[in-house]
Amino acid sequence: MGDPKKIQKLMFFLLLLATIIIIVPVVAIFAIILFHGLPALNWGFIFGMPREGMRAGGIFPTIIGTLYLTLGTMAFSLPLGVLAAIYLTEYAAENWLTRLIEISIINLAGIPSIVYGLFGLGLFVMFLNFGASILAGSLTLAIMTLPVIVTASREALITVPKSFREVSYSLGASRWQTVWGVVLPNAIPGILTGTILGLSRAAGETAPILFTVAAFYLPALPRSIFDQAMVLPYHIYVLSTQVPNVPAKIQYGTILVLVLFVFIMNISAAFLRAHFRKRKLW
């Protein structure tokens, strides 16, 4: 059927078309958000309290809530994830336990975020009695982020040359001294990059925080980790489906702030990676 050259031309055109159909909406979405959201951004919006049933005023508490939640998530998931990665790369033998851990991590990465929400509700909010709070939300998001951080940290640790470890051991260092002295310092850029990316995903999540921390309307800043908090992604949900007649400007403004929050993290991760890659000597 026809000339192979012509078929190739046609097929490559179809491939290109499919790619365009995927990419164009991405660009369009950013254009829409920027076009409608930028006019809303001003000091009053960013640093003000919501007013008139969230139909006016600012979104400061939601920004602070998201910030606290992101930091809380990091406080739990970073040490746990890095230590777990150290176990897998530096200590674990190739046996059934290691395989079990790997399978668990893969499965954790695949569990739906709403199931994390249920689990957080059952364990942290109810069973441990933390109530709906920044603490419960951070722990829930930390568990959800764990696989990302473990995977990124493992990759970073593995790329540290084996010879560095050998030198350290040959000088009489113990395993931990070697990890602390030569392995970790050289893996930190990769670990940080992966962590920031994981956290940026957590910052945009709604389902895990629905029942563990998010407050519908709470025009005050949280004062302790046992307080509930307003959070950006949930606030977008509220503004778009739960409260009637919210001005589009406020909706898009809030969305733009969340998108900026997430993208600043993504861009700093990319920047970090580029910076360290340039400095890398081995």
Partner: peptide
């Protein structure tokens, strides 16, 4: 033992 028996490797392995 490794403190008493040191080793110099084939390639110069300076740590970064």
């Amino acid at each position: 033992l490794r403190k008493r028996i040191g080793m110099v490797f084939a390639l110069p392995l300076s740590l970064p």
